[in-house]
Simulated assay, not measured.
Amino acid sequence: HNIGNTLNSVNVSAQVLQQCIHDSELTGLSKVIDLLDANAHRLGEFLTQDPQGTRVLPYLRALARRYEAEREEALAEVETLTQSVYHITRIVAAQQSHARVAGVTEQIAVDDLLEDALLIHAERARSSGIEIVIRTDAIDVIRTDRHKALQVLVNLIGNAIDAVEAHDSPVRRVTLVTRTEGDQACFEIQDTGVGIPTELLTKIFQHGFTTKPHGHGFGLHSCALTAKELGGTLTVSSDGVGKGAQFTLRLPLFSEGDETCSTIRKTVCAS
């Protein structure tokens, strides 16, 4: 879906470039050259006295200005193309990371994890006019299963964008906040979307439950289970319909294996 959006941008830029080249007034330059060649033997007289020749220099000046405008337009579209292609390569890399085999615990830079999760939705958010705000606390790294953590964050960010798109509000924003809470890293995904009725908050993670017209009710249930597998929790809060929502993913700063190793080292030292 996100690659599709970016490919649409590539297609638009390619069409603009094609039209720019097709409509270029530089094609008229060859006619001027032919005219000058035909009057080469009396070029001075032709340019200063001949009714047709006296229009050559003004035409060339106008042509030069038009060329500069065409050049700037073409360069802008080439820049857009370059960015779009780069964006596609990053999305593919992020999705390859997202799709890799789970079960491997590793040290992960929190900034990289957020960047990968946001990258997959960046083009969609941009095209929908949704502002993405990131507020990070001093969390450098966590140790967890990258694939599973990314899976949850991608799902939550996608849901937040869905909620904002479905809400007719002048404020269109998804905010990501990271902070520490004791020995846990907290990832808060806040949106200014449709919100959640109070009576549904206790059902939101139930298997098969959904508030979306075409939802299947598996996403948030799966996210909650995955958070539990990682030794963390997933919670939700909302002030009601039309007032947005906040999902909070809490993960241990270190994996259970790290804590065990730390306990063993302390025991050895004490003995």
Rank of each mutant, 00 (worst) to 15 (best):
T192G: 13
V241W: 11
T233Q: 11
V56D: 13
G44C: 03
C261R: 15
H1P: 00
L249E: 11
E115T: 06
L150N: 06
L17C: 07
A102M: 06
L251R: 05
T260Y: 12
E25K: 15
G129P: 04
S9R: 07
S9N: 03
V56G: 13
T267V: 07
E115M: 08
G44D: 07
T210R: 01
R90Q: 07
H22D: 14
E165A: 04
A74P: 03
G44N: 06
L75M: 03
G240C: 14
F254R: 08
D137M: 07
T210Q: 03
D34C: 11
R71H: 05
A166M: 03
E72F: 09
T82D: 08
L118I: 00
D239L: 12
L150A: 05
H87Y: 04
D111A: 15
G103P: 12
V104H: 07
G242N: 13
I134R: 15
G129Q: 01
L225H: 10
L60G: 03
A94V: 01
N11P: 00
G182K: 04
D183N: 10
D37L: 08
A94T: 03
G231C: 11
F218Q: 08
R173L: 05
S128Y: 02
A245V: 11
T248M: 12
H41R: 09
E229G: 11
R265P: 09
N8W: 00
K243Q: 14
D145H: 12
D50V: 10
T211E: 00
A93N: 14
H98T: 00
R61F: 15
G28E: 06
D34Y: 12
H167Y: 05
G182L: 09
V141N: 10
H98R: 08
E79F: 04
R135S: 10
D183F: 06
P197R: 15
F218K: 10
Q49Y: 03
A64H: 15
R124E: 01
Q184G: 04
A69S: 13
T211H: 05
R173D: 05
D168T: 08
H121L: 02
A38S: 11
A14C: 13
T105K: 08
T226A: 08
Q190Y: 09
A99H: 06
A138D: 15
N159Y: 02
F46A: 06
E229A: 11
T80V: 04
H41A: 15
G208I: 01
D258W: 14
G257A: 12
R265M: 14
L63T: 01
I189Q: 07
V85E: 01
T248D: 04
E199Q: 13
I91A: 00
Q19T: 02
G4P: 04
L60T: 13
S30M: 12
D111N: 14
A76I: 00
I132C: 02
F205D: 11
A122S: 05
Q52A: 07
H147D: 04
A62F: 05
S127I: 06
E131R: 11
A149D: 06
L119F: 03
E115K: 07
Q19D: 14
R124S: 00
